[in-house]
Nucleic acid binder design. Sequence first.
DNA 1: CAGTATTTACAAAAATATTTGTAAGAATTG
DNA 2: CAATTCTTACAAATATTTTTGTAAATACTG
Lengths: 171, 171
Amino acid sequence: MLEVPGSSKSENPSVEGVGPLDALERDIIAYWVQTATLLGYPRSVGEIFGYIFLSEQPVNADDLVEHLGISRSGAGQGLKALLDIGAIRPAHNIADRRDHYQMQSDLGVLVKQFLNVRVFPPLEELRRQRDALKETVAASRNPHLAQRFEKLLRWQGKASPLIAVLKSLTS
Amino acid sequence: MLEVPGSSKSENPSVEGVGPLDALERDIIAYWVQTATLLGYPRSVGEIFGYIFLSEQPVNADDLVEHLGISRSGAGQGLKALLDIGAIRPAHNIADRRDHYQMQSDLGVLVKQFLNVRVFPPLEELRRQRDALKETVAASRNPHLAQRFEKLLRWQGKASPLIAVLKSLTS
DNA sequence: CAGTATTTACAAAAATATTTGTAAGAATTG
DNA sequence: CAATTCTTACAAATATTTTTGTAAATACTG
C-alpha cells in the first residue's frame, strides 16, 4: 500500500524496494495516521500528510495515487481537508500544471486554522443551542430543569478561561 | 425513540405524552448527543448522559432501555463509558439491587478523569512512537528526514506549554 | 449454598463513515 | 476559442464503527 516517496530507486539501495528505509517511512506514515485519527480524521488523511511530511519535493494528487495506492478522488479530498486546516500549503512556481502541495512549516498557522475550522464552529453551535434551551427552560417553569441549567452554565463559566487560552492562539 | 424521564404521566399534563415538555427534553438530549459526538462518543452515550442529566432520580440501565429504546447491553456499555470519564457516578443506598447512577456534579472530577482516560494516554503513546522514530531517523543518516524531525520536535516544544496547562487541571 | 437477578463479554446485525468511480465543471494552453 | 488537463461533486461500493442479542460470569438473597 505504501511506496517510497521522494527518493528514486537509484537512491534506495534496498532489495525489492522493501529495505530498512521503507520500513522507517511506513512507520512515520503510521505515526501520522494515528495523529490524524486522534484529531478525528480518516486514515487516508493521515497517510497523505505523512507522505507530504516525508517528501522532499512538493507533492501532487497523482503522486499520492501512485505511492499510497488510493483513488484520485480520495487524494483530492484528503488534500482539501489538509489545506482547510493549514497542515499543508500550495507550492507555487512549479513547472507542472497540476496543483502541488508541501508541508506547512509554520505551526502557528496550522493551530490557528485548525481551531478556526474544526474546533470553534462546533463549539459555537453548541453555545447557540445551549442559549436557546436556556430560554425554553426558563419559560417551562420546571424547577428541576432550571437547576440543571444553572449547573450547566456554571460549568460553562469554569471552562471559558480555557477556551480563552485557545482563542488567544488564534490572534 | 425518546420518552419522558423523571416525571410520571400524572406530573405531565401534556396529551399522549407528547407535550411541550417532551419536546424540550428531546432537545436537551439532542444537545448532549452533539456534545458527545464532538468528544468522539457515539450517539447512544450522549442520549444516556442526556437522560441522566434530565432525571431527578438516580437512573438504572433498565430505565434507559425503557425510555430511550436502546438495548440492555447498549445501556450497560454507555453507562460504563460515562463512568470511566467521571461524567456520572454511582448512587448508593437505593432500595433496589440494580446499579443506579446520577450526574457527576463536580466538573473538576469530570475534566480530570476525561483527560486521564481519553486524552493523555493516546498522547503519550504518540510521544513514545515519536521518540522511537527519532532514534531510527538519527541512525538512518538521512539529512532530509533528520530535518523533518527537527521541525517536528520544535513543534512539540511549542505545544508542551498547552499540555502543561491541561496537566495542571489534573492535579 | 442453591436459586435468581444483574452485569459483562463477545459474535452477529445494523447503521454510519470512508473510499471509490464516474461524470460534470473549471482552468489552462496552444 | 477549441481541445485538453485537472479538479470537484456526488452516487455506489466498501470498510469501519456502533448496536444488538445471546450466553457466560458474577453477585446477591433467602
